[in-house]
Simulated scan of single mutants.
Amino acid sequence: MTSPLLILKAGATFPALAQTLGDFDDWIRAGLEAPGLDIRVADARRGALPPPQALAGVVITGSHAMVSDREPWSEAAAAWLRAAVHAGLPVLGICYGHQLLAHSLGGEVGYHPGGIEVGTVSVQLQPAAADDPVLGALPAVFPAQVVHRQSVHQLPAGAVRLAANAFEPNQAFRVGPAAWGVQFHPEFSAQAMRAYVERLGPELRNEGHDPAALAAGVVDTPAAARVLRHFARHVQAT
């Protein structure tokens, strides 16, 4: 029997959005495009997690929580992630998951001094991504969906920066042979991204942003979405 791939839920989207489009784990499951994989879901905020040795891989979702708050469930998930990476389990952390992965391995996470990054942004691959099995085949520059107030200020020791932009120098990294973090959201559709901009509209206006302009700038991000498919293929090949 093939070991399952785990989607580790670190949070949930807004309830109204979940009713119409589904939740983070639904979007990730669809984006993996891996009918041959047994995909399970576990909520990091509730209960014990399976041993990494029983899994084929893990994807950690985003969250509306903040890694720097160091909530007990989050710190427990960080310890679990650290063990998973040391065991060689393929790992993909998205947004909060990206930050949690960095934190778990000794990196530094905190609020971005520039405030929120939200909407569709341009991301550039770094030279180290050239032969990467998850990001290497992406275009040199590609659009991606983002919504985050915290970021990885310092990568863990030995980590390799794979993607960046002018606002966020650590849009993606790899640590070890099989653990990746991406600050952007490969699972977000343009519809989901516009819904986030609309939902955050009042606070965005208070912070000097134009929600209408941000929403108008949202486009589909098929290149970024390939990260999930590439990760699934990597898991299936190992």
Rank of each mutant, 00 (worst) to 15 (best):
G31R: 13
R229T: 12
V59E: 06
G22E: 07
G97Q: 05
R233C: 01
L5N: 11
P52F: 02
P72N: 03
V109K: 14
A102N: 06
V197Y: 04
A79N: 10
V85S: 05
A225M: 07
G110F: 06
L138S: 04
P177Y: 03
Q236S: 14
H153T: 10
L21D: 07
R174W: 04
V134G: 03
A179Y: 00
G176C: 14
R226D: 01
A225K: 09
V227D: 00
L17T: 15
G176S: 11
V123G: 04
V147S: 15
A76F: 03
A232V: 10
P127A: 06
F188I: 07
A179F: 04
Q183I: 09
L6A: 09
D26E: 12
L32E: 10
G11E: 05
E33V: 08
A179M: 07
L155W: 12
V235L: 05
A224C: 05
A102P: 09
V219C: 14
A223H: 00
G158L: 06
R149F: 11
W80R: 07
P72A: 04
R174I: 00
A172E: 01
Q145F: 03
V146M: 12
R205I: 12
V218N: 07
I7E: 12
Q99F: 11
L92I: 08
L55C: 10
G106L: 06
W80I: 08
A42Y: 08
F231V: 04
Q236A: 15
Q126S: 05
G201L: 07
S151L: 05
A215S: 15
E187W: 06
V160Y: 01
A128Q: 13
H230K: 01
A128D: 12
V146E: 10
A83T: 13
T238M: 08
L155F: 09
T20N: 09
P127N: 11
A140E: 15
L89T: 10
V123L: 10
L135H: 02
A54F: 04
H153N: 11
A65N: 11
Q191Y: 01
A144Q: 04
E75W: 08
H185K: 00
V218H: 08
W73P: 02
P169M: 00
P177K: 09
N165C: 04
